[in-house]
């Protein structure tokens, strides 16, 4: 028994679909435009008129960017940071979350309290900087991984998921003589893939997108990340900046193409991996977020 659509309903539907379609275009167009620019000959780009597709198709921009040793190194470091950082952070968060989901664990309440308070109190940028410097983590690759190893938010999401698994699961493993590590890695983790996929997405995207720790703690060029190199180029185009930010553009090999083309190409290079993993994980993350939102 469906009600017939009135004229008002039809108009609303048309307007609604048009608005949402426009929203999609607004979201996608900048990326498509930059993709077109990155695939267009850089001298041709200067004339303007590049919108949805390249006028003079070429791979030159990508070739030039990847031939630049500094940028290639930065790309590899970004990949290393993302893979290693995500793996370590995930292992840590899962183990911590598992112990907090074990009701008999005698430190459970204390650790919970330590975690929750840490969400609301922070020493601030300067004390943290001094600590990291005193620990000898400045000018080192590990500053990208260790300080942010445990995200309380992610631990809570994972723990909430573990909490709602049936008690029998862990008990059965216990009766079979499994120890805690075996229970976690052989029983609990295999049934927790949706939440682990969500957290993997969050953590890996966070690592891939980070640049501020690079800016704060690492001054040596051989530790720079791709996002930071892109940031330097961006800053250079908008203002006179300190001499340390002029490195990459003044290099001889990059002069073959215009700054505009370098920026577009690098933007695409840092965006592509995200567009690539995101659809595969998308079906999990909505569920994962809702788990985190229900409790806490």
């Amino acid at each position: 028994m469906r009600r017939k659509l009135g004229a008002g309903d039809v108009t609303f539907n048309i307007l609604n679909y048009m608005f949402l379609a426009a929203l999609m275009v607004c979201t996608l167009y900048p990326f498509i435009n930059l993709l077109a620019i990155s695939l267009n000959e850089s001298t041709d780009t200067l004339r303007g008129q590049v919108y949805l597709w390249p006028n003079a198709l070429t791979w030159d921009n990508y070739r030039v960017v990847f031939q630049n040793e500094m940028l290639l190194g930065a790309t590899l470091r970004s990949v290393a940071r993302t893979v290693l950082g995500t793996a370590l952070s995930l292992i840590g968060s899962v183990m911590l979350a598992y112990t907090l989901s074990r009701k008999e664990f005698f430190l459970r309440k204390s650790i919970n309290l330590i975690m929750v308070i840490s969400m609301y109190i922070s020493g601030g940028l300067i004390p943290t900087y001094i600590l990291i410097k005193n620990l000898g983590l400045t000018n080192s690759f590990w500053v990208y991984i260790i300080p942010g190893l445990i995200s309380v938010f992610n631990v809570i999401i994972i723990r909430t998921y573990f909490d709602q698994l049936p008690d029998g699961l862990v008990e059965a493993a216990r009766i079979d003589g499994a120890n805690e590590f075996q229970t976690l890695f052989r029983i609990v983790i295999p049934v927790s893939m949706p939440v682990l996929a969500t957290v993997t997405l969050f953590v890996s995207v966070g690592h891939w997108n980070s640049w501020f720790d690079n800016y704060m703690y690492n001054t040596r060029d051989n530790l720079n990340l791709l996002q930071y190199e892109l940031m330097k180029i961006l800053m250079q185009s908008t203002q006179q900046v300190t001499s340390n930010a002029t490195g990459s553009l003044s290099s001889e090999s990059l002069r073959q193409i215009t700054p505009q083309s370098i920026r577009a190409t690098m933007t695409i290079i840092v965006t592509i991996p995200i567009l690539f993993v995101y659809p595969f994980l998308q079906r999990y993350f909505i569920k994962g977020i809702m788990i985190g939102a229900v409790k806490e």
């Binding site: 601030g124 004390p127 943290t128 600590l131 300080p147």
Partner: peptide, 11 residues
Amino acid sequence: LILFSYVPLWG
């Protein structure tokens, strides 16, 4: 967690 969230409070 304590090292990077609480120790900076010393500062």
